[in-house]
Design a protein around this nucleic acid. Structure first.
Lengths: 242, 242
DNA sequence: AGGTTTGATTATTTCGAAAATCCGCAGTAA
DNA sequence: TTACTGCGGATTTTCGAAATAATCAAACCT
């Protein structure tokens, strides 16, 4: 499971939260799985209350759903959710990019290049199967984050981060079946170039295409996974007020 | 405090969650307040673990912040946060309106009119101080929700709802100092008319103005409250990655 | 035979005590 | 005086058992 071995720093519940989040995103805990307390207690070596706290927070992040008095389960995946998620991500990411280009300074530009370089180097070191690596995924996430960090909006960044993580779960679902990923590195370089050139419109369009094409790839390679669950696939009730 | 007395239906933690959320939004629990467990245990008549679960969820909703191993406190307010919140709300709400107008059907239109009517009637019944009423606030929330419910995006609606609640806290902060609110009902009617007429551009602009003017009113009447806390006011560190 | 109620089993939810951690203060040394 | 260190009290965090609710199946009634 998760290889995070940092007992210090924060609370134990916070540690379990981070590990569970990682395990859900990486699909070590599969979508739709019932989360039984006894099982989890063994897996993460903590007690009921601590688990409950971690689960509660994951519910609010949308990675776990709570069913009345019938426990928790890993948030199911569906074609509908993936498409909806993609549309919302495009909206948020375009705004982030726009603001970041408006407000970013030299230090921001340098940070982007540094992050790209690290991602790029690891990519060539890992070869064709880089997309399976959790380390690469972390650097990939850091690169995309560095592009928008200068937007200056904590709220926007927080929303973006949660959506990014949920989307990562879908990417991860499909990656184990995908023989080879397309040349994302070229796209990343183009996005970086347009962002640093402060070419807002083009940068936004490139990022939107980047997101949408990834979603299309996921659907092409992993859509058969959505049907297996039985429930929660296809169109959801659109009047799902909270 | 909260007058919600429905012990049945959901779990006790869910009940406490709802009551605390209500109390924070209505400023019965003031921004920046330290949330001591002993105090809360008396207030809500539950035990540590149950409180902890409710608090954890509120953290993820942005209404409470957790400080390492030093407990929880009601999320502080600040001019910076209010402005940021407003900008993000405008982005989200404009998109919701656009999609709802695209996708809404007759039933949706009827629902909007019904909600407006209920809000409008209560408003005239309450007279000049309607903005102090929690009941009116609930109907006001329901009206705005009905405008966008047809957007068909669960993710968008969920984000919108959380932002709306956080904004409501700011509205509430200022309402106790505001001698009289401007004629919001006229604005609401105009928004409804343009939405039902499927006049997307105008409806979006009206909603944006509605949100921004409310924020300006809050700042005009309650900005002095932001300074009292001492910390967390004015510009925040823009590189506040999570 | 089909459907419903009852009761045993399993899982979740809640509780309050015990362990771990933090904060303030006094005492000491530089 | 200022900075560092160790103790006492208060608060948070964690734990596992007890209470509560849901599930499943067998027996019962229609």
């Amino acid at each position: 499971m998760s290889t995070t071995l940092r007992p210090a720093g924060e609370t134990r519940a916070g540690d379990v939260l981070a590990r569970m989040r990682s395990d859900i995103i990486s699909c070590a805990l599969k979508p739709g799985t019932k989360l039984r307390f006894e099982t989890l207690k063994e897996l993460y070596e903590v007690s009921f209350s601590t688990l409950r706290e971690a689960l509660s927070r994951l519910v609010a992040e949308g990675l776990v759903v709570a069913e009345g008095q019938r426990g928790f389960l890993v948030a199911p995946v569906s074609l509908f959710d993936l498409n909806d998620l993609t549309d919302v991500r495009v909206l948020i990411e375009r705004q982030c990019i726009r603001l970041a280009i408006d407000r970013g300074d030299d230090r921001w530009e340098a940070d982007i290049m540094a992050n790209f370089h690290r991602m790029d180097r690891l990519q060539s070191r890992l070869g064709a199967s880089y997309y399976l690596s959790d380390d690469w995924a972390a650097l990939h996430g850091a690169f995309h984050f560095s592009l928008v960090v200068a937007c200056g909006s904590p709220n926007l960044l927080e929303i973006r981060q949660k959506l990014f993580e949920r989307a990562h779960r879908y990417r991860r679902m499909s990656s184990q079946f995908r023989p080879q990923w397309r040349a994302k590195d070229v796209e990343h370089k183009m996005i970086m170039d347009r962002v640093i050139a402060r070419d807002t419109a083009t940068a936004q369009d490139l990022v939107e295409r980047h997101i949408r094409e990834t979603t299309e790839n996921v659907i092409a390679h992993a859509s058969h996974l959505f049907a297996q669950g039985g429930d929660s696939f296809g169109r959801r009730d659109p009047v799902a007020a909270e």
